[in-house]
Write a protein that binds this DNA or RNA. Structure first.
Length: 307
DNA sequence: TAGATACCTTATAG
DNA sequence: ACTATAAGGTATC
């Protein structure tokens, strides 16, 4: 494995690896100690986190090319990485180390709730996950606890994904669209997906056949992109917003889940409208527009950890 | 177009 | 032990 380190203490806003990867944004990383999403906010302080991404030779697109193993851990103000390739740029991209957190915070309102959320998890960044895995994992997220969503992705990787062996260890790769499309509803139900099983299978089929790809949404205007993603089975507006925010660089996307809806009723009642689209517009504007999704993610993690 | 309901499975509360 | 309830919603009628 190749290795390197990134001085994250020099980044604008610093970095908090555990908050970034265990805040319910990504279900495509694992902790080497197996304690991902176990609820302990300290234990991941210097733990190794691992993922496998497919990266093209042109270094632009995820979800294409050969699997690359990436491991990271945060120690002594540095982000250490190990990988099957020279992964410095991959780590910077997947963890959005280029984001200017102070500028983002400055662009969002200065209310009590946001201050508390930003203060508590300062250094948390959004992730930039591969589009297909993000699409599938958030289809699985419907009416599901965070820890179980993560388990389901791991189960699919073990059942249908490729393996990569490095230094005597075996890593699982998230299944390709072809691999998931070939799975049966029954096999997916056996993994605990419940009613989401046919959604996952049919969406994978749409991507595998070339009928549509989540990456296609990238070229559209935000609301158009959100609508475009709802063509996938099991994808409504909320899941579409998650894919836009956590994978496709639409930092203005604000997924309206149960937590945020409760928050809106309590803290931003004037933004509570009678449709998803209308409430979305109102809260997006209230949260400063361009980086509204960043504010949403801090609030989501903050409120969820209180419970 | 707006509103109500079913949906898998698991963990937790009572 | 047993039942009710809810978990980052969506599809269908």
């Amino acid at each position: 494995m190749e290795a390197g380190r990134i001085d994250v203490s020099a980044l604008a806003g610093g970095f908090d690896l555990q908050a970034t990867l265990e805040s319910g944004q990504s279900y495509l990383w694992q902790r080497a100690d197996g304690r991902m999403y176990d609820g302990d906010e300290q234990s991941g302080g210097d733990a190794w986190y691992e993922t496998v991404v497919r990266v093209d030779d042109d270094r632009i697109r995820l979800d294409a090319g050969d699997p690359v193993v990436v491991r990271v851990r945060q120690r002594d103000g540095a982000l250490e990485w190990e990988s099957t390739t020279d992964a410095d740029w991959i780590v910077r991209s997947l963890l959005r180390l280029e984001d200017d957190l102070p500028a983002i915070r400055a662009a969002t309102p200065d209310d009590r709730l946001l201050d508390a959320a930003f203060d508590r998890y300062w250094g948390m960044r959004l992730v930039r996950d591969p589009p297909f895995g993000t699409l599938i994992s958030f289809i699985c997220s419907a009416q599901m606890r965070v820890s179980r969503i993560h388990e389901m992705q791991l189960a699919m990787a073990e059942a249908f994904g490729d393996t990569v062996a490095v230094d005597g260890r075996t890593y699982r790769v998230f299944p390709t669209p072809d691999q998931l499309a070939a799975a049966t509803e029954s096999e997916l139900r056996d993994l605990g997906l419940g009613y989401r099983a046919p959604y996952v299978q049919r969406t994978a089929e749409m991507v595998a056949s070339g009928e549509a790809h989540p990456d296609d949404a990238r070229d559209r205007a935000y609301e158009d992109a959100r609508e475009h993603l709802t063509q996938f089975v099991g994808v409504g507006q909320k899941v579409a917003d998650c894919v836009l925010l956590f994978s496709l660089d639409f930092l203005e996307a604000v997924p309206l889940d149960t937590w945020i809806q409760t928050t809106i009723e309590e803290y931003y009642p004037d933004c509570d409208r009678d449709s998803y689209a209308a409430t979305s517009r109102a809260i997006r504007e209230r949260l400063g527009g361009e980086y509204a999704g960043y504010a949403q993610t801090y609030v989501f993690h903050h409120l969820r950890s209180e419970s």
